[in-house]
């Protein structure tokens, strides 16, 4: 129980930090970073598109790590953490897809095009959305935690294969980070890093908040069982 008492405090600090960072990030996007020459203002979508995509992959990696820990330690909280990470990951990758699509419409005049990173993100979104549906349907019964862990690992193992196959299929994504410097000016880089940091803080806040909620849910369940036992006596 002790942990749940501390969470609200950490949560408040994290939430405050992410709000402050977001404010700085937004300032950097709108006022600090210069307008890109060829794409114009629309290029500024990049400053939240990229952090969203990055943190969603961190989340999916987190699902895999937590799943490994479930199999290794058998502790329930790793299973809860895997579910929480998957949820935030699906939210972030969904938003990255939406912003990517809008950017594509503005820059290449098409809502959707085949591109390795875009397609990989879409496939991952499908995989982890499916994973969440399976979690909420409680597939597995008593062996549920282990099954979810296996799915979490298998899903992540698929990521590089999806990316390779999508790249072999064909590509037009701007290789922002591939070439050194990537044609970004220093002010643009500051905006990128501040926003990556801000979204990271928000990511941590959401994960912790959701995890705290899962703890509450367990407390409700435990209390219900206690009451049931008492009335039975």
């Amino acid at each position: 129980m002790g942990m749940f008492r501390i969470y609200p405090k950490i949560l408040m600090i994290l939430a405050g930090a992410s709000m402050a960072l977001m404010a700085v990030g937004q300032y950097a996007i709108w006022y600090h970073a210069p307008e890109e020459l060829t794409m114009g203002l629309v290029q500024k979508i990049f400053y939240f598109h990229l952090p969203l995509a990055w943190w969603s992959f961190v989340a999916f990696f987190g699902v895999c790590v937590s799943s490994v820990m479930v199999l290794w330690t058998g502790r329930e909280h790793w299973d809860v953490l895997a579910g929480v990470m998957a949820e935030v990951g699906v939210l972030f990758s969904g938003l990255a897809l939406v912003t990517g699509s809008i950017w594509g419409r503005a820059a290449w005049n098409t809502w959707w095009t085949w591109d390795p990173r875009l397609s990989t993100t879409l496939v991952m979104w499908f995989v982890y959305a499916g994973y969440l549906v399976l979690r909420s349907a409680d597939v597995g019964g008593t062996k549920g935690a282990k099954m979810r862990a296996v799915l979490g690992i298998v899903a992540f193992v698929d990521v590089p294969l999806v990316f390779l196959s999508a790249r072999l299929w064909r590509s037009i994504h701007p290789a922002v980070l591939a070439s050194k410097g990537g044609g970004l000016e220093p002010e643009m880089w500051t905006a990128v890093w501040i926003n990556v940091l801000a979204w990271g803080a928000l990511f941590a806040t959401l994960v912790l908040a959701r995890y705290h909620g899962a703890g509450l849910k367990r407390r409700v369940e435990a209390a219900l069982i206690r009451i049931q036992e008492k009335t039975l006596q």
Binding site: G130, V139, V150, L161, S165
Partner: peptide, 28 residues
Amino acid sequence: IGAMGHGQGAKDALLTIIVFPLQIPILL
């Protein structure tokens, strides 16, 4: 994945929503 459907009753049909996206690279 098929082994996960074992003993699940009707729930095994749900597994398809994760099998199909996982298969994408090899189908391509």
